[in-house]
């Protein structure tokens, strides 16, 4: 990683074996290909393991406080809309203490990219259950097993109105790089949930899905315009019948025609939301870009309003500005 032109001189201090290394390595590979000058890239993070990320990327970077990176990024983007602003957050930072900011950033559609590293655990505070932890998980704060139902990050982003929503594994280098590139090109809020392994406090939490032996059968990689086919032999597919997904084993070529074709550009987020909630063993878990629609960005709309005001009421000189309203002269 040290050889990347975007690497910094700082020692990376994640635990050996942490999934964050893979994410960083893929980001460092993608960054030089984006055509964005180093000085125009800004990484903003909150608090947690994931949030150390900016220290390891040789761009502008701001490691802030717990949960608040989306709000700080919003202020920066409003001030410098020309910058490429990336938020790096985790399941505790982005979905618990900072969930409110995340929802509102996505709803407003600021042109900001959000990488949410979901390892389903609080790592930096040494292992407490998080809002995405599986129900029943035994941790230091849930010795008898957690009673809480987990939050689905991708579904949350979709319901918040995000215009780009994707999901990927930390160890799926090619998939992750493609998603990061697509997010960088998207104008608007891009939300990427990265399912990431914490080998110290929540090891192998995604292995039942991500392991190469089973991944093809238990996940569905969504490709725009392609039928929803999956499985080692690409012989399983998803159909929609009576508003319910059902699996179809593709026996003959014409069976493929019965399958759903992925349309991330659909304005209605219903199908994407439905897909985001599929879970193994009933269904394959949907990966890739679930939604990608074009809507005006917040900063563009704000700039339009400002331009409209300047056109309708051109600024006056300072003296006239201060005098506005009822003024009078004392001689």
């Amino acid at each position: 990683m040290k050889t990347s032109p975007f690497a910094t001189d700082q020692d990376v201090r994640w635990c050996p074996g942490c999934g964050d290394y893979a994410i960083l390595a893929n980001m460092l590979k993608v960054l030089p290909t984006l055509g964005i000058a180093r000085e125009n890239l800004v990484f903003i993070s909150g608090i947690g393991c994931a949030s150390r990320f900016p220290y390891y990327v040789n761009t502008y970077g701001f490691h802030t406080i717990h949960g608040r990176a989306p709000a700080i990024a919003t202020g920066l983007k409003l001030t410098r809309p020309e910058l490429s602003v990336w938020v790096v957050t985790g399941d505790g930072d982005g979905l618990s203490i900072g969930a409110n900011h995340l929802i509102h950033l996505l709803r407003r559609n600021l042109d900001i990219k959000i990488l949410l590293f979901n390892n389903q655990i609080y790592g930096l505070t040494k292992g407490q259950y998080s809002p995405t932890s599986a129900q029943g998980i035994v941790t230091k704060t849930s010795p008898q097993g957690s009673v809480e139902r987990p939050l689905n990050a991708t579904a949350l982003a979709l319901t918040a109105g995000a215009t780009f929503v994707a999901r990927c594994f930390d160890i799926d280098g090619a998939g992750l790089q493609n998603i990061i590139k697509a997010a960088a090109k998207h104008r608007g809020s891009a939300f990427i949930e990265i399912l990431q392994n914490c080998n110290v406090f929540n090891d192998k939490t995604f292995v039942h899905l991500s392991d190469r032996q089973v991944r093809a059968d238990r996940t569905l990689w969504l490709t725009a315009g392609e039928p929803m086919l999956y499985g080692k032999d690409k012989n399983k597919g998803l159909m929609l019948q009576n508003n319910k997904f059902s699996e179809l084993t593709v026996a003959a070529p014409q069976d493929v025609k019965k399958l759903l074709v992925h349309q991330p550009e659909l304005p209605d987020p219903h199908l994407a939301l439905h897909l985001s909630q599929l879970d193994w063993p009933d269904y394959p878990v949907a990966m890739g870009i679930l939604r990608q629609v074009d809507l005006p960005t917040y900063e563009d709309l704000i700039a339009q309003r400002a331009q409209q005001t300047r056109d309708d009421h051109p600024p006056k000189d300072l003296t006239s500005l201060l005098k506005a309203g009822t003024s009078w002269i004392v001689k």
């Binding site: 903003i44 701001f62 802030t64 406080i65 608040r68 709000a71 700080i72 990024a73 919003t74 202020g75 920066l76 983007k77 409003l78 001030t79 410098r80 910058l83 409110n100 900011h101 929802i103 509102h104």
Partner: peptide, 18 residues
């Protein structure tokens, strides 16, 4: 902003941006 914290943080982000 969506809350008081977001308001000050957005201002901090703007200050960071000059």
């Amino acid at each position: 902003a969506e809350d008081e914290i977001s308001a000050i943080c957005a201002a901090i982000g703007a200050a960071y941006g000059g």
